[in-house]
Computed example of a mutant assay.
Amino acid sequence: MYQLGSLGITARTLATPLLLLALTSGAALGQTIPRDAKRIVSIGGTVTEIIFALGEQERIVAVDSTSTYPAEAADKPDVGYIRQLSAEGVLSQKPDLIIAEAGAGPADAITILKASGLTMVSIPTPPEAEAIAGKIRAVGAAVGKSAAAEKLAIDVDTGLAALSQKLAAIDGPKKRVLFALSLSNGRVMAAGTETSADAIIRLAGGINAAGAVSGYKPLSDEAVIAAAPDVVLVMDNPQLHLSAGEAFALPSLQASPAAKAGAFIAMDSLYLLGLGPRTPEAAFDLAAKLYPDVFKP
């Protein structure tokens, strides 16, 4: 499997369809993607979402457990969590093409899949809004639907631009948003910079209250108090059991502006953090919750 990012491609470079097509075809690496692939294993919720958006869902024979949208994806066989794949499970689907988000694993499973001789394409997933269009183009090139992918990419960029114009109407300070991945042992696992949560917060016109750290990090009580979030944002995931009551019961959050206002937002994880075709809508929905006076019905 090869990653476009390892070849020195940035999010901006991904916007060049011809260069993208040449690289995803594997021509420079002696690998040819079967454009007429009939049995695709799609690994990564955003990859699966893009393939469905391109109308190529009938070619998908299996997905991973993060592929939760659209609902029809649940009808496909599940090969496991993106970072805990079973090579045997993937191979049992007899795919002629595997498309996976960068970071799929574990390493030993990927080694087995590479050794099988199957064609694999790794889609770069930098946590940047500017990279969404490139991600769509990469998937489109892999499934032989570059023209449709180009249209979808343009639609996404147009939606993001429209949101940016709407956000210009915000009068007053921006909301400080703390994204909590988990609340375990009384500690907030927060999203700092270089995360998809940071990207969606900024797209929605907010300020990442945990912007002093990079990646997902547990914050000390002192750091949470200093962050002074106006809003606490979490994934709407029943398995995590993250509730406003639990969050605002933490001593570090009890006196925060968010707790005083009861400002707690829960959104579907793939919708919120996927950075895919629905991101303009997800960012708009988040912005409407942050700035209801600007985004009136």
Rank of each mutant, 00 (worst) to 15 (best):
M1W: 09
Y2W: 12
S6D: 09
G8E: 10
G8I: 02
R12E: 15
A15H: 04
A15Y: 00
L20N: 13
G26Y: 07
T32P: 02
P34V: 02
I40M: 04
G44L: 04
T48H: 12
G55N: 12
Q57G: 15
T66Q: 14
D75A: 12
K76M: 06
R83K: 14
Q84G: 10
E88K: 01
L91G: 01
P95H: 12
A102W: 01
P106M: 13
A109K: 02
I110Y: 00
I110H: 00
I112D: 05
I112W: 05
K114I: 00
G117Q: 08
G117L: 06
T119M: 10
I123W: 13
A131N: 14
K135T: 11
K135M: 07
I136W: 11
K145A: 12
A162V: 03
A162R: 14
D171P: 03
L178Y: 11
L181V: 13
L183R: 03
T195S: 14
A197S: 05
R202Y: 01
A209G: 00
S214R: 11
S214I: 13
G215N: 11
Y216V: 07
P229T: 15
L240V: 09
I265N: 13
R278F: 01
T279H: 03
T279C: 01
T279S: 04
D285L: 07
L290P: 02
